[in-house]
């Protein structure tokens, strides 16, 4: 199985130094378990390709083009000529506008499906691949998809392989000059100004100190609260189990066994988010 990994010019969130984005390094690890992988970077600098070699790739291609130009055309042309089975990308490429649109645009250009938020992949029989997709609250969705396919990687995927300097020296980078593209092809670039950090939204602002404390610790359950005093432990246990069943986190007594929840109550209990 042949895999292409899309690489972008990220920056470290704390130090600000150029680095490979974490999800792309995770994508390299995921690709290493599937077959022969090549890296693919479009941009003015080659360092993402070099960093990718250190994280486990043997070979990467760097398509040089001017900063700010659209990477989708050169990427799609290269992928069409290489014809990989799977194109892996991070959740959102860094260094440019960071819209996360590049994998989608590449998939649309190639006419192949895109599967977001993968945490694990396994090859299946004849041209199929099994992809585990991360959903909220640790739930997975196992998809069987026909290749070729574009897949983006979720941060919950296995951690990236550590950077190895020797590996980065041994790997090879192919340097390609992209055909010049006109910069002003799409919409005019938006106005830019230095980033200003803004205060985070609070759930409930203002009020007294007691109000703010209530806002962060959660409202005391006033109306529906039930407090049971002077109960034997046995009655208390019955009350607790009945409550947990009413809420839907515990299977009914008639179900197969303790601790196993049926699919229906699984869905019913998933409503509370964030």
């Amino acid at each position: 199985m042949r895999i292409a990994v899309l690489l972008s010019a990220g920056r470290h969130p704390v130090s600000g130094k150029p680095t490979l984005p974490r999800t792309e390094a995770q994508a390299i690890r995921m690709a290493a378990g599937l077959g022969a992988a090549t890296g693919l970077h479009v941009g003015p600098d080659a360092f993402p390709a070099e960093a990718a070699l250190g994280h486990g790739l043997d070979y990467a291609a760097h398509i040089a083009c001017a900063a700010g130009s659209d990477p989708v055309g050169p990427l799609a042309a290269r992928i069409v000529s290489d014809a990989p089975d799977i194109v892996l990308a991070g959740r959102r490429g860094q260094g440019g506008d960071e819209t996360g649109l590049v994998p989608y645009a590449v998939a649309a250009r190639l006419g192949v499906p895109i599967v977001p938020d993968a945490v694990a992949m396994r090859p299946a029989t004849d041209g199929l691949v099994e992809i585990d997709q991360a959903l909220p609250k640790g739930v997975l969705r196992r998809l069987v998809v026909r290749t070729p396919v574009v897949v983006t990687v979720h941060p919950a995927a296995p951690p990236p392989l550590p950077f190895a300097f020797g590996k980065a020296r041994r790997g090879s980078i192919e340097r390609i000059a992209a055909a010049p593209t006109d910069l002003a092809a799409g919409a005019p670039p938006p106005e830019e100004r230095p980033y200003r950090k803004r205060p985070k939204m609070m759930r409930a602002a203002g009020g007294s100190a007691a109000d703010r404390l209530k806002a962060v610790t959660g409202e005391a359950t006033a109306g529906g609260a039930k407090v049971l005093d002077h109960q034997t432990p046995e009655d208390a246990a019955k009350e607790v189990l009945a409550f947990l069943r009413r809420v839907g986190v515990l299977a009914p007594a008639s179900a197969a066994g303790p601790g196993r929840r049926p699919a229906a109550s699984e869905d019913a209990s998933r409503h509370a988010t964030s």
Binding site: A220, T221, A225, L228, Q231, P233, E234, A236, F243
Partner: peptide, 17 residues
């Protein structure tokens, strides 16, 4: 006060129950 169901009992006794 925060709980939807509060039980005034020793947790060490309620667990085996």
């Amino acid at each position: 006060a925060r709980a939807g169901l509060g039980i005034i009992q020793d947790a060490q006794l309620v667990m085996p129950a």
